[in-house]
């Protein structure tokens, strides 16, 4: 069986909000090390990989592997019934057909319980290759989100160029073109505003901005985001969690 407790329901609410627009139904695999999810979005452009280590829970118990086949939007609907600071418990018996969620306020004078029906989902898993990326950029998650939102007014695609001078985002559409360039920098007072670039060779890739905008909904999970790119390969975009991560593998646009 699975029994996992979080001190604040907001932790799971934010994670689910970060993936719900891309994923429909998917399996969450639970074992003694924690919860994991790997799923393609409906268009197969983004692969979402979520890891929630058992250390990230205030209490965690899972003696035997459990697969939770869930509709992510149904999970989001139920989670909306929890207050952000409620204590959240997830429970599922071995081979059960439901996930039980309880929400308690800190004084434990209100307890809500919801049972979510589980589904048998025949899901494809892909092998994510171990890769040394040509360029790695760590930057503010909010700044990345803002930059992409601005450029989406111009075009449906963004080109990202990374070289030793910095990272450049550009877009071109019917009304004209625009770009934002960030130089590597260290902000001693607000470390999350630093821009750190590690590079073995310059890279330029283009991406669909609508999907990118869905990815950056994870910005509430972490102050920084790690963007990794290699020419002609999907980008890896990672938001770190206290114990785990949400990673997106994002297929680029390729010149014909």
């Amino acid at each position: 069986m699975l029994e996992a407790k979080l001190d604040a329901a907001s932790q799971l609410k934010k994670i689910v909000e970060a993936i719900r627009d891309m994923l429909g139904e998917c399996n969450i695999e639970c074992n003694e090390t924690g919860l994991a999810l790997q799923s393609l979005d409906k268009s197969h452009i983004v692969l979402v990989s979520l890891l929630l280590g058992s250390d990230g829970f205030s209490e965690y118990r899972c003696d035997r592997g459990v697969t939770l086949g869930l509709n992510i939007n149904s999970l989001a609907t139920v989670l909306r019934c929890a207050n952000n600071d409620d204590i959240l418990t997830l429970r599922s018996e071995d081979r059960a057909n439901e996930l039980i969620l309880t929400f308690e306020d800190s004084k434990a004078d209100r307890i809500s319980e919801f049972n979510l029906r589980l589904m048998d989902i025949d899901q494809e898993y892909l092998a994510i290759p171990e890769t040394e990326y040509a360029a790695t950029v760590v930057m503010s998650a909010a700044v990345l989100q803002r930059t992409l939102r601005d450029l989406s007014a111009l075009s449906e695609a963004v080109t990202i160029e990374i070289d030793k001078e910095g990272i450049r985002f550009s877009a071109e559409g019917d009304l004209g073109k625009g770009s934002t360039h960030f130089k590597p920098c260290v902000d001693m007072e607000n470390a999350e505003n630093s821009i750190n670039i590690t590079l073995s060779e310059p890279v330029s890739l283009s991406f669909n901005l609508q999907y990118f905008s869905n990815i950056t909904k994870a910005s509430s999970l972490s102050s920084t985001v790690t963007l990794q790119m290699t020419a002609g390969m999907p980008a890896q975009i990672e938001y770190k969690l206290p114990s785990g991560h949400v990673r997106y593998y994002f297929a680029p646009k390729i010149e014909d």
Binding site: Y125, A127, P129, M233, P234, A251, P252
Partner: peptide, 14 residues
């Protein structure tokens, strides 16, 4: 012209 690729073109089933 650029066309959108899919993840399946890069990552294979194990």
């Amino acid at each position: 012209r650029a066309s959108q690729s899919t993840i399946g073109a890069f990552f294979k089933k194990p």
